[in-house]
């Protein structure tokens, strides 16, 4: 007799746990032909709220880690993903990808994670500066994470799109609340299991599945979210911009094909950084009054 398979239950990822949506609702993820492949949590605004609370709480722990340590954790994500490659390939195929394309997407994702792992302890060196001011002061500018970032995962790419924006956000020490790809959601939840197994502190990344149209508002109007990232969705840009005004969220919108190799780089990290400038007096380097 054929063994009865254990089916996977897809839950959301919030605060380092895998709860069901507090709303109890679900929606069906469908394959290319329209056949149901899984019940997905239909996240609610309360799930968004809880995720933001978790992300805020985790910010100190994540941004406070040494850059080297964050680098190791990102590399660990790549290692774990490499080990679970086949699972992701299967999910991509289930969601309608051709096998060779699915393999490439997973491999590219792993490589992209490694790429950002390498940046963690370097980007600050490139964008920082010691500023030669005309007075007896030492003055330097450096990056600091912007804080809690809301990410609406690219809707045209299941895994690589998510990885392409999530990695630079967390490489820079931010924590993140992700609205998963609505129509291709499987990989995002499975990816949260990878994150969970990779020493990423609970709450640093939170992933919610559901209807983007419903969840955008609670996320982009949330007063404790510091920045928002999304890709495509040009029809929603104005709405997202308007929602973001109240606490002056930094809104980053991209219109890119994340499968391309040139869609990675330093600036995806610095897009989610604040520049902080610090001054301190120095004795004996000329007068305190500048000689204008």
């Amino acid at each position: 007799m054929k063994r009865v398979e254990i089916l996977k239950t897809y839950k959301i990822y919030s605060g380092g746990n895998f709860p069901r949506t507090e709303s109890g609702r679900y929606y069906l993820a469908l394959d290319k032909k329209g056949n149901p492949i899984a019940n997905m949590c239909m996240g609610s605004r309360k799930d968004v709220r809880n995720a933001v609370v978790s992300a805020r709480k985790a910010l100190g722990a994540w941004s406070g880690k040494t850059a080297f340590n964050r680098s190791q954790i990102l590399y660990r994500i790549a290692e774990v993903l490499e080990g679970r490659k086949s699972q992701f390939i299967e999910e991509l195929i289930l969601q309608g990808s051709q096998k060779n394309i699915a393999i490439k997407e997973v491999e590219d994702s792993i490589d992209r994670i490694v790429y950002y792992a390498g940046w963690c302890d370097k980007f600050c060196q490139i964008g920082s500066s010691v500023n030669p001011v005309s007075s007896s002061h030492f003055n330097f500018s450096t990056y600091e994470p912007v804080g809690v970032v809301g990410l609406i995962a690219p809707q045209d790419s299941s895994l690589l799109g998510l990885v392409s924006l999530l990695m630079p956000i967390i490489a820079g020490g931010n924590t993140c609340v992700v609205l998963a790809n609505e129509s291709l959601p499987l990989c995002s939840i499975t990816f949260s299991e990878v994150l969970h197994a990779s020493d990423v502190p609970g709450g640093a990344v939170n992933i919610i599945t559901g209807h983007i149209s419903e969840l955008i508002k609670p996320l982009s109007t949330h007063m404790d979210v510091n920045a928002l990232a999304f890709s495509g969705l040009s029809e929603l840009k104005k709405e997202i911009d308007l929602f973001s005004v109240e606490n002056l969220k930094r809104v980053r919108s991209y219109d890119l094909n994340w499968q391309n190799t040139d869609t990675q780089g330093l600036h995806y990290i610095t897009d989610f950084q604040e520049v902080k400038t610090t001054w301190h007096p120095i004795e004996n380097i000329g007068g305190a009054t500048s000689t204008y």
Binding site: S129, N131, N139, N226, L248, V275, T278, W279
Partner: peptide, 23 residues
Amino acid sequence: AGVVWANTYNKFDPASPFGGYKE
């Protein structure tokens, strides 16, 4: 905060980036 002055305050210079966090 975008600018932090330690043991000084309200210093400005063309070479020094200025600007804020949050609102």
